[in-house]
Design a protein around this nucleic acid. Structure first.
Lengths: 342, 342
DNA sequence: TATGTAAATGATACCGATAACATTTTGCAA
DNA sequence: TTGCAAAATGTTATCGGTATCATTTACATA
């Protein structure tokens, strides 16, 4: 950095140089304002000459509009959330809104801390992942006075609005897929239930669907605290086969853990899906190119982000658009669960 | 959102309720300030009762300290940058600094646009990925008046400071590894050179090292615009083998493309490394659990983030700490390039 | 030319905190 | 009790824009 010898120029400096009032400068630097063409040019020249850079903080302060959207996600090291964030970022690109991003690391306490911090920045909208929060956090969000969007989930009583899908239903879809393929002794590998609420929902949906079909629903392995890694997927499969050797099929809480489980099988001469079927969740890139390819649930993570962005824009603009919809999750049936196509 | 009926309370409201001046409230809400214990309690109670939330914008405005650190990375959908960001985020966690994140999508124009936008927020430090910028962007950064850190690279003439490694040297390391293993006809699969400057550096280092060793250096396949995907890795390997069927070893610009290339081989009965050796770059999780495991370059992406965070803190605190160092990249020799250990 | 309306520009009063310095209170040694 | 330094608190003046309303200018029409 070159230490700036003199302090940065202000709007007043530009106004003086251009021979107008600061108000006119303020207008000239924004689109859609009525400023004479000649004047605008004169002001832009002056600003250029002085190297003037608008001070958004002062502007935010004066106008009570910060242009911030606070966003919390569990982790960035998760392709699904990264995709959602990409969608969000893209969707917000030309709105002039800036994302304030925070990682909760799958902890509600951390989420509360982040929200508390973000509220001080006076965001114009708040986006959180999931519908489960600490009481205090929920209260903070309710009293925030700005639109709150809970994504990646369908809470029974949303704080304000939600854009997501039912993780339980999505897991049930996979159970149905297994059953269609003729599997009956089906297990589930998931993260530590106490933290990953979406993973917990999936497990719940999994168990409920099995029970509804009159099948055994006790083959549950906990793989450690989320996010579940490839390695934990491997280890969990070992545990699964140790405990219930006659397991025919396994649903994993994410594609990563499924990939780990499959890797273990391949390395140890267990054929997938001939000896055991394995499915994932989330439609990560890897599921498409793994060998065998992995049956998974496509939740269109990026579309969620785009939809949230759209909805944020809607809520912040005067003329409210239609509520945004996203597609329901679908099963991508691939090699890892279908003997016939193998 | 519940629409806030009355506007949010200000420090003045809290001061009135607590029977003190706003200055005392201001002090009471910050750590390390001399405020009487009783007074502090009284103020905290009043703030709690009113549901007062500090307005950081006003605070920033008054104090000329925004607490922002602007960060640009090429993409979030890249495990390496995601890790760096995690490290950065973690390292900045208790400093009270908030990251303003932007994605350049591997475009210098986009980077310039982002920097211009970020400067309006008056960040206290700026972190960019790589050492290659548009002229205007470079000028903006030079004149910013705040610390600028270029990461993931070692520019010859850094704008201010850089924390990274030489991508060319790292690629040369891999050439040496191949040669040690007895390979001589070595190819390179990388992204479109015009955009991904780090990928370009790797290719340059690759070619230079081969030439220095007197080996052929023309086996270069361009895999499309970055980031190179798994699928592009597959396609590129096909192209490589079509063009130069006698290729013995291939270095890929990232582990993802390496994984794709290997997947193609596995599916088509080409043995890795017996028929062809394949290496990646970046030490992604997948390289460790792929079958075969993938030889790669460990660049300690997260450590880069942590180091940058550390250095930002250093630069912003009065007593400057020592300049931060990161470990040099190392080869992780795995199955995909070593016939002996297969 | 007179006149009216829209466009362009200006004047003034804040927004809500903190910096810097002034003043009062406290606590303790002399 | 007095005196005095340190701790606690208060006063005042901004920070750099924008909202709002007032005023001037431009231009088309009668």
């Amino acid at each position: 950095m070159m230490d700036q010898p003199k302090k940065q120029p202000t709007m007043m400096d530009v106004a003086r140089l251009a021979g107008v009032s600061t108000m006119t400068v303020s207008r000239a630097l924004k689109p859609n304002t009525s400023v004479g063409e000649k004047t605008r040019q004169k002001i832009q020249d002056a600003a250029e000459q002085l190297g003037y850079v608008l001070n958004s903080n002062a502007a935010s302060f004066a106008s009570h509009k910060t242009g911030f959207v606070a966003v919390t996600i569990p982790s960035i090291n998760n392709a699904n959330f990264a995709e959602t964030l990409t969608g969000l970022s893209e969707g917000l690109n030309n709105t002039g809104l800036q994302i304030l991003l925070g990682y909760t690391n799958y902890s509600k306490q951390e989420e509360e801390r982040l929200i508390e911090q973000f509220l001080q920045r006076r965001p114009e909208a708040i986006v959180v992942t999931g519908g489960s929060h600490t009481d205090r956090c929920r209260k903070l969000l309710e009293n925030s006075g700005v639109p709150v969007i809970e994504m990646w989930d369908q809470p029974k009583s949303p704080i304000d609005e939600s854009i997501g899908f039912s993780n339980a239903d999505a897991a049930a879809l996979m159970v149905d897929h297994f059953v269609e393929q003729g599997y009956e002794r089906i297990g589930f590998i998931g993260g530590d239930a106490s933290r990953d609420t979406r993973g917990l929902d999936r497990r719940r949906g999994f168990v409920a669907r099995l029970e509804a079909l009159g099948l055994e629903s006790h083959r549950l392995v906990s793989a450690g605290s989320p996010p579940v890694t490839i390695r934990e997927g491997m280890d969990s499969l070992v545990k699964m086969l140790d405990t219930w050797p006659d397991t025919q099929a396994v649903m994993c809480v994410s594609d990563l853990s499924a990939f780990g489980a499959i890797s273990y099988c391949i390395r140890n001469g267990i054929r997938v899906p001939d000896d055991i079927a394995i499915a994932g969740f989330g439609a990560y890139d890897i599921s498409e190119v793994s060998n065998p390819t992995i049956t998974t649930v496509d939740v269109s993570a990026q579309a969620i982000g785009l939809a949230v962005a759209q909805q944020v824009s809607n809520r912040l603009s005067v003329q409210q658009g239609n509520p945004v919809k996203i597609a329901a999750p679908t099963i991508l049936a691939r090699e890892s669960t279908q003997k016939s196509v193998q």
